[in-house]
Structure formats: structure tokens, C-alpha cells
């Protein structure tokens, strides 16, 4: 099955030879860079503001990174097949509002609300997947349109968040779960750990994961090799939708109440986290472990800049410059021969 081996069906660039000498592939090296960047940022943060890299400071950064990481899990899956999910912001926002209004302050209704919300996310993903895989709509257009559809539905059905059930708070149990700690570590991070293990298992040890990489390297070739491209694509978008909804639920639990525009920052952050973590934007290369490291370094970077009391415009500019620097360091295409 060497044909399905990710990143082996391309001639290794000169840098790969260099990497091989150190015993790591270029893909693994990118993940290492992201991890080193995260550690470095915690170190710098600790120098600027004592307490930044204390256990509680790190836990605070990781909690915020967890939200980005959950959204980026779905984003990573679809980027691996060369797609993209632009419907993240309003899937997340709709998820948070749906969870809040369905559960209506009550713990008893929470399981039902969870089911409805995750189902809504999966349904959004299903629409995306069917549009892209069956009808051949470009992923950018399909998910962009779905984002609009969800924005309209969320605003319209909730009357601009003025509906009677929109005044509810997140169920106490959900709030407790989002804020609670187990063995001194935020409970939310255990959930993330579970997601990390599950996603890594799917990507590295299942035929489904192999199929995902194969489609990213060449949809036609993997179709001929027996991968069910249509089904895999649809499932991946369903996963992405469900993860966006899950992130919405967790953000709701953390914040206590949903707001409009809640999901807006998460689109670009989820893409940036995946790319910083070494996921190739055109698909076929990368791993969720890298995305996790990318989410942590991204959030740590923003936190460091905030600790430096940098105004908003400075943060925005620095953020852009650092992404460019990282891209130039390891996101370059091989030169044309």
C-alpha cells in the first residue's frame, strides 16, 4: 500500500534529505517547529509577565487554545483532502445559540440539547459534503454559502437573538464542566486530549485516515486505488461541522451566554493553527498533532502580545507578520525546475 503512504509519492526535496539525517521527515519537522514555537512563547511570556508561564497561566492559555483546537480539528480533516470549511463561524455560533435555547437553563434537557446541537453541526457538514462531493461545487463557494445560510437562519429564527428562549443561560452542568478542574487540570482539557487521541488514531491507524491522505494527494488516483472519495469527503465535512458545533457548546459553557458574532474569530484562527502546525493547505500532508501545537502557539502568541499591553492594531499587524515569517520558514513550495 505504498501508494497510500502520505508524502511518499513526491520526489523528496533537498530539505527532506537534510531532515532525514536527523531522523525526522519534513512533516514531523514542521510539527516540531510548532511545538518549539509554543514553548518559546511561554518562555518569553514568563519573562515579560511573571505568572504567565506558571501552571495556572499555562492552563488559561491551553483552555483558550482548546476552543481553537476543536474547530481546527475539523478544519484539519477537510484541509487534508484539499478542501476548506468557511462555514465555521456561523456553525459555531448557531451551535452555541441552539444549545443555549434548547437546554433552557435546565440540566435535565442538556443531553437532548447536546444531541440536537451536534446533529445540527453534522447536518451542516452533510450539506457541505454533498454539495462538494456529489454536485462538484468548489469547497470555498459551498462552505461560504452555507455560512451565509446559517447566519440568516440563526438571526432570523432567533429574531436577532431577541427570542424568549434566547435569554437563557448555559445549563449549570455545562458551565461547571467548562470551568471545573479534575486533578488540578481544567476538565475541558481532558475533552481536548480525548479528541487529540481520537483524531490521531483515525489519521494514523485507520484505512479511513489513509484514504483521507490519499484523496489530498490525488483524488483521481485514490479513486482508482479503491478509496470511496465521495463518502470520505462527505464524512470529513460532517466531522468538521460537528466539531464546530462542539466548540460552540464549549464556548457557551465557558462564557455562560451566547452572543452574535461569537464564531467570527475562529475561521481564520482555525486555518492559521492548522497551517502553523504544518498542515499543507492544498492537502495530503500534515497531522492533527501539528494543528494542536499550532493552536497553542497561536493563542500563546496573542496572549504574549496582550501581556505586552500591545494595542489591537499592533497585535493584528504582529500576528500577520509572524504568520508570514513562519510560512517563509517552512511553508514554501519547491522551486520549479
Amino acid at each position: 500500500m505504498t501508494i497510500l503512504e502520505p508524502s511518499t509519492n513526491e520526489p523528496p526535496p533537498a530539505s527532506a534529505v537534510r531532515g532525514a539525517r536527523l531522523g525526522v521527515t519534513p512533516d514531523q519537522r514542521r510539527i516540531l517547529y510548532a511545538i518549539v514555537a509554543a514553548i518559546l512563547l511561554f518562555f518569553i511570556g514568563g519573562l515579560i509577565r511573571p505568572g504567565f508561564s506558571s501552571p495556572s497561566g499555562i492552563a488559561a492559555v491551553l483552555t483558550v487554545a482548546c476552543f481553537v483546537g476543536l474547530v481546527a480539528a475539523g478544519q484539519t480533516f477537510v484541509i487534508l483532502i484539499g478542501g476548506i470549511d468557511l462555514s465555521v463561524p456561523w456553525t459555531l455560533n448557531a451551535g452555541a445559540i441552539l444549545m443555549m435555547s434548547t437546554a433552557a437553563n435546565s440540566d435535565a434537557r442538556m443531553p437532548f440539547a447536546l444531541l440536537v446541537t451536534l446533529g445540527m453541526g453534522a447536518l451542516v457538514g452533510l450539506c457541505n459534503g454533498v454539495g462538494i462531493a456529489v454536485f462538484g461545487v468548489p469547497a470555498v463557494v459551498m462552505t461560504l454559502a452555507m455560512n451565509g445560510v446559517l447566519e440568516g437562519l440563526t438571526l432570523g429564527l432567533s429574531g436577532g437573538l431577541t427570542c424568549s428562549s434566547c435569554a437563557a443561560y448555559a445549563p449549570p452542568l455545562l458551565q461547571a464542566a467548562a470551568h471545573g478542574t479534575i486533578l488540578g487540570i481544567p476538565a475541558i482539557l481532558y475533552l481536548w486530549l480525548g479528541v487529540i487521541l481520537l483524531a490521531s488514531f483515525i489519521l494514523s491507524f485507520t484505512t479511513f485516515g489513509r484514504g483521507t491522505y490519499a484523496i489530498g494527494n490525488g483524488a483521481r488516483a485514490s479513486y482508482l486505488a479503491g478509496v470511496n472519495v465521495t463518502r470520505t469527503t462527505i464524512i470529513l465535512y460532517v466531522i468538521s461541522g460537528a466539531f464546530s458545533a462542539l466548540a460552540g457548546i464549549m464556548i457557551l459553557g465557558f462564557g455562560g451566554q451566547a452572543a452574535l458574532g461569537l464564531g467570527d474569530p475562529y475561521l481564520f484562527q482555525s486555518i492559521a493553527a492548522a497551517v502553523i502546525g504544518g498542515v499543507y493547505i492544498l492537502g495530503g500532508r500534515g497531522h492533527y498533532v501539528g494543528t494542536v501545537a499550532g493552536s497553542i502557539s497561536l493563542v500563546a502568541l496573542v496572549s504574549v502580545l496582550m501581556a505586552m499591553n500591545m494595542p489591537e492594531y499592533g497585535r493584528s499587524i504582529t500576528y500577520g507578520v509572524i504568520i508570514l515569517v513562519l510560512l517563509l520558514a517552512y511553508g514554501r513550495e519547491t522551486a520549479e525546475r
Binding site: I271, A272, L282, Y313, S316, L324, E333
Partner: peptide
């Protein structure tokens, strides 16, 4: 320049420069 000579993907370059230009805009007119 970043796309052509830096050999970077356009979607990523413009994602990063979007943040830069937005930041500059707020700097110019808060």
C-alpha cells in the same frame, strides 16, 4: 512578491496580510 518569489500559497499570504492591513487601517483611523 510573497506569492511569486516567496513561493507561498495565495490563500495563506493574503490571510496574513489581511491581518496586517486591518491593523494598519485601525492605526491610521482608530
Amino acid at each position: 512578491l510573497l506569492v511569486a518569489y516567496g513561493r507561498l500559497q495565495p490563500i495563506l499570504v493574503t490571510l496574513a496580510t489581511l491581518a496586517i492591513f486591518q491593523g494598519l487601517a485601525i492605526r491610521v483611523l482608530p
